[in-house]
Every structure is written in structure tokens, then in C-alpha cells.
Design a protein around this nucleic acid. Sequence first.
RNA 1: GCGGCUAUAGUUCAGCGGCAGAACGCCUGACUGUGGCUCAGGAUGUCGUGGGUUCGAUCCCCACUAGCCGCCCCA
Length: 434
Amino acid sequence: MSQTLKAVRGTRDLLPPETALWNRIESTARSVFARYNFGEIRTPVFEDTALFARSVGEETDIVSKEMYTWEDRARAQSEKTQTLTLRPENTAGVVRAYIEHKLGETGQLQKLYYIGPQFRRERPQKGRYRQFSQIGAEVIGPPSAGSESPLRDAEVLEMLATLLDELGIKGWTLELNSVGSAADRERYNQTLREALIPLAPKMCVDCRRRAVTNPLRVLDCKVPEDQPIIETLPRIYDSLDEASKAHFAAVTATLDAAGVPYTRNHRLVRGLDYYTRTTFEFTHGGLGAQNALLGGGRYDGLSEAIGGPRAPGIGFAMGEDRLVLTLLAQELNQKSAPPQVDAYIAPLGESLNSAALALARELRHTGLYIELGEGSFRLKKSFEAADKTARSIVILGEDELQSGILTVKTFATGVQTKVPRAELAAFLAEPLKG
RNA sequence: GCGGCUAUAGUUCAGCGGCAGAACGCCUGACUGUGGCUCAGGAUGUCGUGGGUUCGAUCCCCACUAGCCGCCCCA
């Protein structure tokens, strides 16, 4: 019994016409990033495992159980084996590249974006795949370049609001919080742990476990009965030092001035260890449990954590798969787009096939979108095929070839006319006719 | 990693312990160089994979695989 080979669990093929939507999303993102003076960075799909362990955090689920990791065998005795990992996210790779290429030495703020596949070995669900694509950007640089300024946070958030609007995402929400410095966070963790000692026994089993293992995660609990208790817990804002409070106030004031709507979410504590101060999520209903379109935040200590110079930064990662799902759901109610193909060339008889390709070549060189039929088709079949794929049909029979005057029928109007070959391209290029 | 639901035509899905079904799509013709609307006809398939029960399994049971939903976590 031969097994048919299939895409492995959690991976999938993207086919037309959906790939057109992916391209639209990516070109929109590139266009917005360019206007904000971001340049593209492309880092390797795999990296030394230590990079992720030291940046994302040894204890996070991502690193402890979701990475695709393998031992790269040595090819020579002098070569050491290395433990490699398919990147589970891209910020670590970008910061590694920033350090490796000494971009901090330029003294300039680095504004970098990426679009590409990431890999996590999670249980697949709708909007969650083992190979998934993220669109992300990072603003990073030495403090002297202004990399710590709350203006940078606000600008990134304002850019994201612009991007989601230009993509046509309706009804997004920006949720904003601050987790403070690494020290603030540790202090809060301790405060929370203590506050939970008397409360945890009244909460769900997961919270009882989290109260000990990872108190911050209690804030994410969705069990309705636990909500009143969670509301009484200390808020992270009260554990922030004055500088972090001031930073957060400046971010919100700048957003207010720019007219970017947001809601404060005291419970928004992100899972990756490297986040400091500002953290945020843009969410959208209709994605089920995977309601986050994108998430991000500031990571002022990340560069140093992986052996680089001080290089504060802020960035985000957007789930491209989820953008596609959201846009597809929105477009369900809209009528399908008209065919992009300008004309379908129908040769009448196989002897006209070569003349048809020559004509198609001529028209395509003018920039027209042309589909080429097949001379063995009966004209009726050519019409049926043309009507499904193109806005018009160009009939190429012996008469047309001899006279140089082609027969063109426009489907939208049903009008059929004779057009000299020299005028054909111009005729087809007019939207109302072609 | 855990729990629940699901798997039948290209697609969306019915179905039943005893010949494999519908709609849409596809093909052919009515119409020999004219599509859409209509009418007539046609083909859809290892019923996810492997085992078991049974005279007989697409149906019942088990395992596996995959998808969906939730948990964990996260984009």
C-alpha cells in the first residue's frame, strides 16, 4: 500500500486565489514600512539554539517544548557539532544581526522590518500553524540615537494603526500596558505571588498551579468565576518605578495627541522574557481563541542578554495567517472581484495556435493580462472558458488572420466588434471595452 | 502535551449492517464561428489508513493519521 505524501501536520499549501491576498497584505505592509523609513532585513530561518534560549527565555513554553531543534552533524573532525533551531520568532535573529554587524556603531537608529516563516511545534488550530508567517518590525539603536524615547513606542503603534487600516481590517482594538523594567517585573512577580497565597485556593485548578509556577499567567485566566478575584489583585502599574511610569505616560499622551485609540489592559503581560516597559496587542474578534492579530513591546535589555552592547528597542510581530483569516471573513459578504485577465485569445483550429501565441506575446508586451486558449476547442467551449477567466474574448480565425481585423467580444456589455490588429492593444486596455 | 467533535465525488454535505447519494462544479449535446439563461444526457468515489466483530462493514468496535473546537501557550 503506497502512502500518498501529504503536507506535514501543521503545515499547508497556499494556492491561488488566496495567494493574491497574501501578496496584497505583504505589499501593503512594505508600502507602509517604507513611508516610515523602515528597511527590510532577512535573517536565516535557523539559528544557534542558544540565541533563542537566551533571548526568548529558557523557561518559556516556546523554548522548553515548542522548538524544532536538531544536532547539526560535524563534517570534519575539526568542526564542532552545533545545536540548531528553526526560528520560533524573528526578533532574536534581528537583534543578533544588529550586534553581529555592529549596527550600533553607526550611531543611527535602526528601523528594520521582516516578512517570513517562523516555526513552533504547537498543536495546530485554525489560525495557528507549525509553520506560520510573521510580519514584524524593530526599532533599535544606542540610547544616544533616541532608541529609548517614548516617541518611538508611539510611532510604532501609530504605524500599526495605519497598517491595519490600510489593510482594511475593521474593528481592531489596541490593548496597551507596561511591564516596567526587569527589576519592576521581578518585584511585581513577587508581590503577585504573595497576594495569591490566600486567594489561589478559591480559584480554578490552572490558577492554583500558575500561582506557584508563573503568577503572571493568572492574569490571563478566562474562567468567569475567577474574574472578581483577579480584579482585586495588585496591578503591575503600582510596581513600576518612576521612570517607567513616566515613559508609559508619555506614550499614552503621544498616542492621544495623534488620535490613535487604545485601551489600557492591566493584565496584558506578554510571554517572552525580553519584554520591558511598553507591551501591546492588537486584537480582533472572530478569531476564536487566537484573537491576537499582533503583539509586541519594548525590549531594552535584549541586546545585552545575548552579549551585545546596550541597544534598547521596540518591535512587534504580526500573524500573517490571522490577517488572512480576518480579511477572508470580512470579504465573504462582498461580491468576488471581476476577472483581472483583460482578454482570452481563442484560436479557431490548431493550425492557428502558433499565430495565437504570437498575438498573445504582442499584447502581453504592452502590459495586458492575456489568457491563451487552445485551437482544438470548439468556439462554444472557448467562450465558456473565456467567460470564466477574462473580461473579453479575441477570436482568431482564418478570416481574422488574413484580414488583420480581429473579432472582440466584451462580456460585460455583450457587444462584439471588429478591431484592426494595430488598435487591438489600445482597445483592450480601455476598461469599459476590454 | 491534554480533552471533545469530525473524516463519504473536484467542493459543500446527506445517508444506511445488504447495488454509493444530492446540490454546486465538470463533460457532451440541442446550437458544425458565439458564452451567460434554459433543456436533455454523462462521469464522478479504494466512503481517511490499518486491524477487529459479522454470512456480509462506508455504517459497529479498536488503533493510527489528519482537520476543527477548547485547554496549555502564543502571532
